Simulated scan of single mutants.
Amino acid sequence: MTAPAARARWAVFGAGAITADFVRALPAAEHGVLHAVAARDADRARAFADAHGAPVAGTYEQILARDDVDAVYLGTVHTTHAPLAHAALDAGKAVLCEKPLGVAPAETDELVAHADRVGLPLVEAFKYRFAPFPALLRQLIAGGTLGELRELETSIGFAADTREGRLFDPATAGGAILDAGCYPVSLVVGVAAWAGIATEPVVVAADGVVGAVDEQARATITVGPLTARVATAITAPLPRRTVIRGTAGELEIPNVWGSRVESADAGILRRRDGSVEEVRTGTISPMAAEADATILALRAGRREVAEMPWAQTRATARLLAAWRAAL
Rank of each mutant, 00 (worst) to 15 (best):
E164K: 13
T59Q: 03
L152R: 00
A321W: 03
E290V: 13
R66S: 08
V69T: 07
D169C: 07
I234H: 06
V209W: 04
A71E: 03
T145F: 04
T281C: 12
V103P: 02
E252F: 01
L89M: 12
L84Y: 07
E107D: 15
T235M: 06
V123Y: 01
S155Q: 09
V210D: 07
T313Y: 10
Y128D: 02
V279I: 15
W257D: 02
A38G: 13
A88Y: 08
Q62M: 02
L122K: 11
P134Q: 03
R303K: 12
G144W: 08
D41Y: 10
T283K: 14
R245E: 13
I141T: 10
H31Y: 11
P27A: 07
L122F: 06
D41E: 14
V261F: 10
V204Q: 02
M1I: 05
Y183R: 15
S186Q: 10
L152G: 00
G196M: 07
P170Y: 06
M287E: 01
T294K: 08
E124G: 04
G157V: 09
L136T: 12
Q216E: 15
G144P: 09
G53Y: 10
A113Y: 11
R166E: 14
E290G: 00
T232H: 08
E278S: 10
A233V: 07
S275G: 12
D43M: 04
Y128S: 14
P201M: 09
F168C: 07
R240F: 06
D273Y: 03
T313R: 09
V118P: 05
L89V: 14
P121C: 11
T145V: 15
A315D: 07
A322S: 13
A38T: 05
E151H: 13
T19D: 09
I221L: 13
G211S: 13
A3E: 15
A91L: 11
A25N: 11
R40Q: 13
